[in-house]
């Protein structure tokens, strides 16, 4: 699905990613954990195509294509979805209008006809139910006046609507209480299939109790320094990141 090879990226002359390697296959869930400042959010921004970041080395292959050559919108149209850590408000633009525009742009890119109003509304009903989003929120302006939990749920709703091949959840658990966390996680789990993949970026292992990862990676100082399975997340929870830092320091 995605193959990241020796990725180096910097912002304002400061190198953040320093040779990151990661391969994710269809049907897998990968968790990326790491202390603050390790480069977790940079990774999601770079993959989604934020222009402030400069790629200085490495390659990213997404579904057989060179991801780094694609524009932000084409990456999305190819099936890359980012659930934002801080979803953006767009006053005056209804959620459904926003999503319909997005969906039709993606369909046009794939050479499909625009979705009919009837089919679209049916899809909205189906997916709001799936992620437990209050259907009133679907017709309100994008994220405007939403609570923190509603915003995160709205991200998952958008993911459900757009059916991406690869979804990157950037600290989706931050700011969620335990009930909201369960609802969001249930939504994500119900969207999981053998044809898509999910990268969960998180600071805490709490989320991983609900979205069970196949692999857990530790990102530190711009690189993946350790990979393992679910038990690695538990170890991090128990011992913190200090032992990783120490291990890393001695290796240097």
């Amino acid at each position: 699905m995605i193959k990241i090879n020796n990725l180096h990226a910097s912002i304002e002359e400061k190198e953040i990613l320093k040779g990151l390697n990661l391969t994710v296959n269809a049907g897998e869930v990968h968790a990326i954990m790491g202390p603050n400042g390790a480069g977790k959010s940079t990774l999601s921004s770079v993959l989604a195509g934020r222009e402030e970041y400069k790629i200085t080395d490495g390659s990213v292959e997404f579904d057989g294509k060179n991801l780094l050559e694609l524009s932000t919108e084409d990456r999305a149209r190819e099936g890359l979805f980012l659930a934002f850590q801080y979803p953006i408000e767009i006053p005056g633009v209804s959620n459904v209008n926003f999503l319909r525009t997005a969906l039709n742009e993606i369909r046009e890119y794939k050479g499909l006809d625009a979705i009919s109003a009837k089919d679209f509304m049916a899809l909205v009903r189906q997916k709001t139910a799936l992620v437990g989003l209050d259907s009133k929120l679907a017709t309100r302006s994008v994220n405007e006046g939403f609570s923190g939990g509603e915003k995160k749920r709205n991200e998952i709703f958008q993911m459900a609507m757009l059916e991406p091949k690869l979804a990157i959840l950037d600290e989706t658990d931050s700011g969620l209480d335990i009930d909201a966390l369960r609802i969001v996680s249930d939504g994500v789990n119900s969207l999981k299939s053998k044809d898509n993949a999910i990268i969960v970026i998180t600071h805490y292992q709490r989320l991983l109790d609900y979205i069970i990862p196949d692999y857990v990676h530790v990102l530190f100082d711009g690189k993946i320094v350790k990979s393992g399975q679910k038990d690695l997340a538990l170890k991090l929870e128990e011992h913190g990141y200090d032992w990783i830092k120490e291990e890393f320091a001695t290796r240097k």
Binding site: E73, A76, P87, I88, L99, E105, L162
Partner: peptide, 15 residues
């Protein structure tokens, strides 16, 4: 940020 958010959903800059 608003523009990036829209574009990440597949919407062209113009739209």
């Amino acid at each position: 940020d608003q523009l990036f958010y829209c574009m990440q959903r597949g919407i062209s800059e113009e739209k």
